[in-house]
Design a protein around this nucleic acid. Structure first.
Lengths: 277, 277
DNA sequence: TCAAAAGTGTTGGTAATACACCCATGA
DNA sequence: TCATGGGTGTATTACCAACACTTTTGA
């Protein structure tokens, strides 16, 4: 069988790192799998924002088992029906937003999209867990609050996780979250090419230079400022002029830039390709 | 330096320490997997092929309630663990292939990719069902066999389901399968643009004209034959020459075409855009 | 008045389209 | 030998990267 571009065929195994998997494995070998409940369904959220010209992802340090002490994506069980934990989630995106709002307040306008679903038999040591991953893109948000299951929470620059220039080898996240994050990074990079998604990282009014900053941060490369400017304005529906000017020019002086808001278009014609200037 | 909650302080890097495997062992020994109300997890498969220049989708007519008598995508419950029904599915793609092979034998090379997961609270009248949808692209396959839950099974042209030119209003499929099929159609149309996926619909050796037939069938439009030919050969890694010729020219005579096989490339540079010739 | 940033004009090279044309084969 | 489909040549057109240049602002 061919794997396909999006082939989800990894082993989903939490990789080693500083973590002694042998002990956990020995313990699990003695477990009777038939004592377990059927699959549990969770949502995990890759929330991305841009701070100081660098993409950041929202992570929490797990306060409880399993994988206590490791950094993980915000997530939680889908509420299949009303229970003591709370009312049922009407749909999966509701569950994703619910677990995310436990960590950070959200603005009215955010972008939420499904990334994929991960269900390898050994991805969670407790039982069979099927996890639906979502990606959220948001403008710069306040620092997160800690939740019940979280020792600490933070916006972590993705250079610390193995992405972008000057990236170190990358820390291992809990479960298969390293892989989920990798899929999100590639999705975000790719969607900037042919959709107007970059505006999801920006406040309602922004300059073309700020928009270029989003592309440069996510793609990890510089772009030709003058041609970028023209290309954006030549793409119908990408941005529309507010008629206003930014409060001030650059730090060391400079002309004040025009402010734009997101236009109606979702798809870009023509696309902005990564390979070109 | 202390790893503060504020990700902007210090290098924002997640701390490596804090994970304790022994402690985790103790936790798992006392863990009750029934603590979380599970949802049922199913896979549904949108299998697409091209017959007589028209895309077809594999459907079965439901022999049982609910939605008895309606056409539905092949699907079934994910086997979370070994049981009387059979061994556990190691991963979700395995489950998708399992339910598909109940309907039709599969060739060695098929393309399988995840489409998305659907989990609205009312999508199945019986209970909360979370369904992971997969898309399979295959060369022309034999007629399907009926399964336990299926009255009849057939490859149905997607003009009968509301897609392509000359489409009628479209039959209603069971559950939310109309929406799942719609997502698959859009995914297939879009992926032909920037990936080499079209070859998944063809046998191992094919002509450029047959490849163009795939594009024309899926996109529902004609393409400029001469320029298509050149464009394919100019895209590195899309196809490679077998050195052979097709057995015969067209029905009414004609030169014999060269045979190609799929090249190594997954992504097309440059892409073939729908909007152009 | 200088430096920095925003934004515009221009141009040479490249790629895509449309169309003309030749090649090979079956009837 | 004609019709049909495979495949190539080429002029025109459209686009795009590169760079020069003007405008506007802070220090």
């Amino acid at each position: 069988m061919s794997e396909g571009i999006d082939g989800r065929r990894g082993d989903g195994r939490p990789a080693a790192g500083g973590y002694d998997a042998t002990d956990e494995h020995r313990f699990l070998a003695g477990y009777d799998p038939n004592a377990f409940a059927p699959a549990a369904v969770t949502v995990d959220v890759v929330a991305l924002t841009i701070r100081d010209g660098l993409p950041h992802v929202l992570l929490g340090r797990r306060a409880r088992h399993p994988q206590r002490g490791r950094w993980a994506l915000p997530g939680g069980f889908v509420r299949a029906r009303d229970s003591a934990a709370g009312p049922a989630d009407p749909d999966l995106p509701d569950a994703a937003l619910r677990v995310l709002t436990e960590k950070t307040p959200l603005p009215a306008e955010i972008h939420l999209e499904q990334l994929g679903t991960y269900g390898a038999i050994d991805r969670d040591p407790r039982m069979r867990v099927i996890s639906v991953a979502y990606m959220v893109l948001a403008p710069d948000l306040p620092d997160p609050r800690t939740g019940r299951d979280t020792a600490e929470a933070a916006w972590v620059p993705w250079t610390a996780l193995g992405y972008g220039e000057g990236a170190d080898t990358g820390h291992e996240l809990a479960f298969d979250h390293t892989r989920v994050l990798g899929d999100a990074v590639e999705r975000a990079r790719s969607k900037l090419e042919y959709t107007a998604l970059a505006t999801a990282f920006l406040p309602p009014a922004f300059t073309i230079t700020e928009l270029r900053g989003v592309y440069e941060a996510v793609w990890g490369r510089t772009l030709h400022a003058a041609n970028f400017h023209r290309k954006i304005l030549a793409t119908p529906g990408f941005v529309e002029d507010t008629g206003e000017l930014a409060d001030r020019g650059g730090s060391g002086g400079g002309r004040r830039a025009r402010l734009y808001r997101a236009g109606g278009a979702a798809l870009l014609h023509p696309p902005l390709l990564r390979g070109t200037q």
